[in-house]
Deep mutational scan, measured.
Amino acid sequence: YDEVAAQGEVVRKLKAEKSPKAKINEAVECLLSLKAQYKEKTGKEYIPGQPP
């Protein structure tokens, strides 16, 4: 859960800094992968601010 939240912060920071699109896309792919792992382990969708 904490990893997903941390990666979400990374994506937000990159977007706020107007980073190159390729770098943002890479961070988003990582975030989506973490969300998929979270769902696989818990059986639930990741919802920000609602730990399992």
Rank of each mutant, 00 (worst) to 15 (best):
E29T: 10
K35V: 03
K41H: 11
A5S: 09
E9A: 15
E17T: 15
N25I: 11
L31R: 05
A16P: 02
S33L: 11
K35N: 01
Q50P: 08
K41Q: 12
V11L: 08
Q7V: 00
K21T: 12
A22N: 13
C30Q: 14
A27D: 02
G43H: 03
T42M: 12
E26A: 11
P48T: 10
Y1E: 00
Y1T: 01
V10E: 09
E3W: 00
K15F: 02
I24F: 04
K18T: 06
Y1F: 15
A16V: 08
K41R: 12
Y46Q: 05
Q50L: 11
A16F: 09
V11S: 00
P20I: 06
P48S: 12
E26P: 03
R12H: 03
E9C: 15
K39C: 06
L32V: 11
E40K: 14
L32I: 10
C30N: 07
Y46L: 04
P20T: 13
E29C: 05
E40H: 09
K15G: 07
E9Q: 09
Q50I: 09
L14N: 04
V10G: 02
A6T: 15
A27W: 00
A16L: 13
L34Q: 06
K18N: 12
E26D: 11
K21S: 11
L32E: 14
A22E: 14
G8R: 15
Q50T: 10
L14R: 03
K13Q: 07
G43F: 01
D2T: 15
V28Y: 13
S33I: 08
K39S: 05
L31V: 02
A36Q: 13
Y46W: 13
E9Y: 02
E45S: 07
A22K: 13
I47P: 08
T42R: 04
E45K: 04
K13A: 01
E3L: 10
P48N: 06
A36F: 04
L14C: 01
K39Y: 07
D2V: 14
G8V: 14
K44N: 15
N25T: 13
Q7K: 01
L34A: 10
Q7S: 01
K35C: 04
Q7I: 00
S33Q: 14
E17F: 02
G49M: 10
K41V: 12
K23S: 00
K18Y: 05
G49L: 10
E9G: 07
K35M: 10
Y38V: 04
A36E: 09
E26W: 01
Q37V: 05
K41C: 09
P48I: 05
A16C: 06
A5R: 09
Q37W: 00
R12M: 07
R12I: 02
V28M: 14
